[in-house]
Design a protein around this nucleic acid. Sequence first.
DNA 1: CCGTCAAGACGAGACGTTGCGTCTCGCGAT
DNA 2: ATCGCGAGACGCAACGTCTCGTCTTGACGG
Lengths: 195, 195
Amino acid sequence: MTPQPARRNERSRRAILTAALELLTETGYADLTIEAIAGRAGVGKQTIYRWWRGKGAVILDALTEDLPGVVALPDTGDLRADLRAVLRATVAEFADPALSATTRALTIETLADDDLADQVRDRLLRPQLDAVRTRLESGRAAGQVRADAPLDQVVELLFGPVYHRWLLRNGPLTEVYADGLVDLVLAAIAPRGRD
Amino acid sequence: MTPQPARRNERSRRAILTAALELLTETGYADLTIEAIAGRAGVGKQTIYRWWRGKGAVILDALTEDLPGVVALPDTGDLRADLRAVLRATVAEFADPALSATTRALTIETLADDDLADQVRDRLLRPQLDAVRTRLESGRAAGQVRADAPLDQVVELLFGPVYHRWLLRNGPLTEVYADGLVDLVLAAIAPRGRD
DNA sequence: CCGTCAAGACGAGACGTTGCGTCTCGCGAT
DNA sequence: ATCGCGAGACGCAACGTCTCGTCTTGACGG
């Protein structure tokens, strides 16, 4: 009944994941069907349904496997510079048509499938958010962040507006924007009376 | 070829909009089809296709017509209290299952249709964002907001994290959360050396 | 070791189902 | 007389399940 992972064909698995990403960037989400993925990968439909719950799960696996995933987060001691680096990278990711297409597809699937939403959050987003949170903690230890700042909310304060602007197409996603956002957030959590 | 709005049947129009909202809250987005809407509304499919481009356009019209739309924004002179009121209302909207279902559906359609995305932004979101921006300007005039604060970004700083948390299911959407968010943002834009 | 053999994953694609978007009817209202 | 209307038939596309025959793999016996 349930398939045995030991007997899984690695070649087919890879072909399916890359076919999904290729189709997504070439023809967009509207034309991304299971049958198209199977055709491009040279694979039977059943082979996809045997190992994945649907398009969304395939995309998620493809992303976690083929892409860097977490934007690397440096700790140079300069909190502002480090946050600018990560925000600039995030903004660039959303501005890039190819990456944006996969994000868009995954977001749609996520909105229609609660289980998938949990997996995307835990496997794709949480690591990134936690990394930033860790950097903020180190900044707090260095006295660059107010001691009582709610760091989880601060992380959302950094990324939330980027998602918001991307989702609503409410303005350009540029480095200038990213830098300004970091400045605003740092002002919110600066120690008393400092900038 | 193009239909004549003058001869449009108002009864059918209303039936379609309410049917769409009812189905959305009763059975969810996955089961929301044009045929289901037509059936529930007692209307031919062609009557829907004659006046709307698809599901998304119907939902948008239903929302702009049937719902309060813009959360009223008071100006009591107390900026913190006013922002808390509007953020609490927004958070409550996203936490409500029925309203959240329509927002989810519209977001999905929006991600797959650029024209619809522009309309949703301009007709549904912009008025709300502009209202908050206006309130911030009045607060700035009253000396409660730093003079050089980029108000458009500040508005996104308020709403972005709410969307982010809703989209990622990254935590509870409560009044406590809304209040904390307002405090953080106010700290970011407070005049020099004040809280 | 190595040959045999059953289990099961594989590519291919047929199948019934569903919803799509278009169309063609009379009907009725303007 | 025009044209939007309810109703629903139509062909199409993709769904998810299924059934083939083939190929791979791992276990067992000589």
